[in-house]
Design a protein around this nucleic acid. Structure first.
Length: 282
DNA sequence: AATTAGCCCTGATTGC
DNA sequence: TGCAATCAGGGCTAAT
């Protein structure tokens, strides 16, 4: 399940392989994958030159020699592969040829089993930012991300802290996995209301989640079910290092008590009930 | 503006 | 064996 580190691995890998190439022969093989512009994606992209690959949180986009960008979201199961020949894989949703003068053509493939991901032509707002991300908050790796401002804003919210970490309008890039890992490291119950946190605790939360994601980025991304593959088709391996996520019943690395699985926001959460004691009204 | 519920989707797994 | 229910879950939309 790609979160910020996995998307960044894809972004940097993709950038190293396709910047300066021309997009041709775009094929759309699944309507949902192109969202709003099903019909004309191929027409608009044909002949475009990729100038750079950018990212905010879990959103990634290709800057083109066009007024618009191509926004890409990997969703739950999206992958991008660059191959020397078409793979013929049944999950290929969009593909095109990658051409550069003096080089043999290669093949860009966007694969997505669960079709929660996709790509679309996206205009820019007044600041030049793609409109699809103009309301998405900066992520912690953004040079302009303001830790203190985020901490202050967070402590004013009434929502539970895990919900705050997952809200891409407050801070972007964090998903279910890194939220749980962060809360375990801090020793905090994810159901604690944000407005009951000290400012210093809020700062600790954001520095911790940044640390967890930095480690994952170094490791090359996390993979659980082999659905995530980076741009070269290699699986990540940081999942071996996870302390709580997916480890129901296993002993906590810190205290040895079993990891508890529970439902939160209609999805699974994992925590240690000893290291992360239940929050209650003071 | 803040918050919440429902929906989208398919392959692996589990249950009867 | 076969069919159905369950699960994975981020983000979009509508409703409050």
């Amino acid at each position: 399940m790609p979160e910020l580190p996995e998307v960044e691995v894809v972004r940097s890998g993709l950038a190293s392989m396709v910047v300066g190439t021309t997009i041709r022969k775009v094929g759309v093989h699944h309507e949902r994958a192109t969202r709003r512009n099903v019909g004309d994606l191929a027409v608009q992209l044909d002949g475009a030159v990729i100038e750079s690959v950018c990212r905010r949180g879990k959103y990634m986009w290709l800057e083109l020699d066009r007024p618009f960008v191509l926004m890409v979201h990997l969703g739950m199961s999206g992958q991008i592969r660059i191959n020397d020949s078409p793979s013929g894989h049944p999950h290929v949703r969009v593909d095109w040829t990658v051409t550069r003068a003096g080089e043999p053509p290669r093949y860009f493939e966007f694969l997505d089993q669960r079709t929660f991901g996709g790509m679309q032509i996206c205009d820019r707002d007044q600041d030049g930012l793609p409109v699809a991300v103009s309301r998405i908050a900066r992520d912690p790796f953004d040079p302009l991300f303001d830790v203190d401002a985020f901490a202050e804003m967070l402590t004013k919210r009434s929502i539970e802290v895990k919900k705050g970490l997952l809200d891409q309008h407050l801070i972007s890039g964090i998903g279910n996995i890194y939220a749980d890992e962060c809360l375990w490291r801090v020793g905090l119950d994810g159901r604690t209301p944000c407005n009951h946190l000290d400012r210093s605790t809020a700062v600790e939360i954001v520095t911790t989640v940044t640390g967890v994601m930095s480690e994952a980025l170094v490791a090359g991304g996390t993979s659980f079910d082999a659905l995530y593959v980076n741009v070269n088709g290699e699986s990540g391996y940081f999942s071996r290092s996870l302390a709580v996520y997916g480890r129901e019943g296993h002993p906590c690395d810190r205290c040895g008590d079993p990891i508890i699985r529970s439902k939160f926001m209609n999805r699974s959460s994992f925590h240690c009930s000893t290291c992360q004691p239940p929050w209650s009204l003071p």
